[in-house]
């Protein structure tokens, strides 16, 4: 329990680093220097000391949304076995809770966007819910594959210590699930090829356009939640592809840090190697990612 809490705290503190790592990788690979790795910490610090301008159209739900978004990501993180053995909170079917908690955050984020009455934010909200529903499909293919392959019902059981044994038995489907999860991570955390965190044209944004009207501490919470979501999904992927059991807490924490940074670097590599997809083709990409995880399920159920 204590080690689970420690690793959760470490992950949340580390989270703002990951977008910076991804951006830095992208910059270096495309021949630029780019912002410093710790840019998001600076931004968060700056935003926490700024005032806010609220739109006259908005209602209390606009102020509530950033808090719920951040809280759901944190609670979802308590379900993931970050220290490679257990999580802060564990129960059978907690994978469902993990996905649906992020759903609650998304619902509030979308309502916050619609609360402004801006057509741009409506556009982002519409795209977000469209793509998220297909992401959900793929995520549950992955969860079902893991549940069947490991005969476990909780995330800690599926991704905990004995995963190495299952890699020996069901390697092909676990590879597919890992690839599928990584592809879904790119969509869920608003990265290229689905969304571009550095785009400047509102018409093409998805996540960024939904937070156009947020400022100050509200925006800081949303940026932190986005980074934490990337960290949690990275930790999931790491827990899946590094099945080695951790003998001690320092080793587990080292794997967590190195692994999530590694995933962030991979995100940066993908972002510099591919262009953004046209919006009508994004569902195809997501369906492909879901199908990948789905084939994993077919292989274990066979």
């Amino acid at each position: 329990m204590l080690s689970a809490i420690l690793s959760l705290a470490l992950l949340l503190m580390l989270a703002p680093l990951l977008p910076g790592v991804a951006a830095r990788t992208r910059s270096l690979l495309t021949g630029r220097r780019g912002p410093p790795v710790h840019q998001l910490y600076i931004d968060l610090w700056k935003l926490m000391r700024r005032g806010v301008v609220y739109s006259e159209t908005t209602t209390p739900i606009f102020r509530l949304a950033p808090i719920v978004v951040a809280a759901t990501v944190v609670i979802a993180a308590t379900l993931v076995p970050l220290d490679r053995t257990s999580s802060v909170l564990r129960f059978s079917g907690d994978a469902v809770a993990f996905a649906y908690l992020l759903g609650l955050g998304r619902f509030l984020l979308v309502l916050g966007a619609l609360d402004t009455g801006s057509s741009f934010e409506g556009m982002g909200a519409s795209r977000e819910v469209t793509f998220a529903s297909i992401v959900e499909l793929g995520l549950f293919f992955a969860i079902a594959t893991l549940a069947v392959a490991t005969q476990e019902l909780s995330l800690s059981g599926m991704l905990g210590a004995p995963l190495g044994r299952h890699w020996a038995q069901a390697a092909p489907s676990l590879v597919m699930v890992a690839l599928g999860l990584f592809s879904l991570l790119l969509a869920e955390c608003a990265r290229v090829p689905v969304d571009d965190p550095s785009t400047h044209l509102e018409l093409t944004m998805i996540h960024e356009v939904m937070v156009l009207d947020h400022g100050g501490p509200d925006l800081a919470l949303l940026l932190f939640a986005g980074a934490a979501k990337l960290a949690v999904f990275s930790a999931l992927v790491v827990a899946l592809i590094v099945p080695a059991p951790a003998r001690s807490l320092p080793v587990a924490l080292a794997i967590l840090v190195a692994g999530t940074v590694g995933v962030a670097i991979a995100v940066g590599v993908v972002e510099s190697a591919t262009a953004r997809l046209r919006l009508p083709t994004v569902p195809l990409y997501l369906a492909g990612a879901a199908a990948l995880a789905g084939f994993g399920l077919v292989l274990v159920v066979r």
């Binding site: 619609l114 909200a125 819910v129 998220a132 529903s133 959900e136 499909l137 079902a144 399920l297």
Partner: peptide, 19 residues
């Protein structure tokens, strides 16, 4: 078990609809 992803899709679509 193949009904599980379908149910998840339903959840996602319901979220879209109530949003």
């Amino acid at each position: 078990v193949f009904a599980a992803p379908a149910l998840a899709l339903v959840g996602g679509l319901a979220l879209a609809c109530f949003a």
